[in-house]
Write a protein that binds this DNA or RNA. Structure first.
Lengths: 251, 251
DNA sequence: CGCCCTATCCCCATTTCTGGGGATAGGGCG
DNA sequence: CGCCCTATCCCCAGAAATGGGGATAGGGCG
């Protein structure tokens, strides 16, 4: 009775993932659930160049070694077509749908062919994007020549999403900084418009102040954060939630 | 037998959402599935200022009229605490968890209190973020005094994610060629150090280039994003996941 | 009352960023 | 081969940001 076993699989994985306190714990849980769902491989990864990236980037997988070597030699972490496709949707997709999401180049087709030659056939990828963090995904794949277990794709969607969040937790998601500086309302106004790309003169017009006053507010905000430049001030205020991406981009 | 009815609800909703060709179709499907899951209200929305935003922004909901009027009068689409919290996680969260995700200001607490007074109690929000597009979410809420149906949260996670993607499809997903800008490796290096607060001279020393080359790379990055200032360039690159908070703050 | 904070405005000099122009070299692709 | 992209370097002038100084006014608190 597949219906019943699907939810049993989910509950078991959620329990393991919730208890996981290391990447190894999570890897083991993912290896088991992949098999249970009818997949052969999994890969939970940030879409970065692992040769250049440091410690904070996550990559947990059980892909064949020769595929991984080939992938890394070409530094495909950023440009892999499946990774690129995952930036065009908010829910999971089978790899057969990739050409509907992005325009495939000849190089992309070659990458997919080489994966097939090295044992990775079709798959299902669950995107995970949190603003301010590297984009990522959790993929489940079948060996070359096998079929994706279509009935279990909703379960794979849930599992992939939950696994990525567990990885964020284990590897240290940003924590709320109780000691972060606060800004006055006026300082925050000026920081928000600066982050929108306005000059002091423009902000002065918008808020009905003199240009020097705007300069002063931004200087005082920088001093509270002890940063030398406005670019890092904007980043810090974003990180602390004093301003939000939506607020910045609003028209 | 709740286990059985949960997956029955999911399959029914997926069928309706897949067939939906208008926002009204999707709204009807969401209204039904919300009740079936044990919620009283739903709201699928882009996090924009609806007074100013245009045609591409989606908002489908069945909230009480006086709450909506209050919400819009204060233009909370971009600064609502639940919306802001959804930018700090990749999976859904109950509103009780919002203080773990963002720092609540006195204004935020007032917003949550007023929602409660107008009939909206607790809820569960599923974030949806596609790089290069406005952030959004699909929320399910219970009336003041009622409990969130915890057993159905995995189902709400699936439903919310699927509904948001259906809304994207109905309202015209972007074309294959419309992708967030990309930066060359060198441009990204310079953007990252700029976002860390370094001057061109400093970046030049760090990367072993001339100061003019650094200026050029940053100019070209601004041109790719079509933004006039470095502050907003840093914000955009963060939003799209090209650089991350951990990249910037890492030593 | 004095002190501190916030908001507002002004001045100066220097550094940094922005727009605009020029150039070379190497690699990939049609 | 020509074209485009990437990386690198240079020049100029003007706008914008940064550091540093000055000031007033109003409100809250000990």
């Amino acid at each position: 009775m597949r219906t019943m076993s699907g939810l049993f699989i989910a509950r078991e994985f959620f329990g393991l993932a919730r208890q996981a306190s290391t990447n190894a714990d999570l890897m083991q849980a993912l290896a088991c659930v992949s098999i249970s769902m009818g997949f052969d491989y999994f890969a939970l990864t940030h879409h970065v160049d692992f040769a250049a990236a440091g410690h904070a980037a996550v990559r947990l997988h059980n892909y064949p070694d020769d595929w991984v070597a080939w992938f890394d030699a070409r530094r495909l972490g950023v440009s892999d077509p499946v990774h690129r496709a995952s930036q065009a949707t908010s829910i999971g997709f089978t790899w057969q749908r990739v050409p509907e999401l992005i325009r495939l180049t000849p190089v992309d087709r070659h990458v997919l062919d080489c994966a097939r030659e090295r044992g990775i056939g079709d798959g299902f990828t669950v995107p995970a994007h949190v603003p301010g963090e590297a984009t990522g995904s959790c993929s489940f794949a079948v060996a070359t020549g096998r079929c994706v277990p279509f009935d279990n794709l909703p379960l794979a969607q849930l599992t992939g999403a939950f696994a990525f969040e567990a990885a964020r937790r284990i590897n240290g998601t940003r924590s709320l900084d109780a000691q972060a500086p606060t800004l006055t309302e006026r300082q925050r106004d000026c920081v928000l418009w600066m982050a929108r790309g306005k000059t002091d003169w423009e902000i002065a017009r918008i808020l009905g102040l003199s240009q020097e006053t705007v300069t002063q507010h931004l200087k005082q905000a920088r001093e509270r954060y002890d940063v030398p430049k406005r670019s890092v001030l904007a980043v810090r205020a974003l990180f602390d939630g004093l301003i939000s991406f939506s607020d910045i981009f609003r028209r």
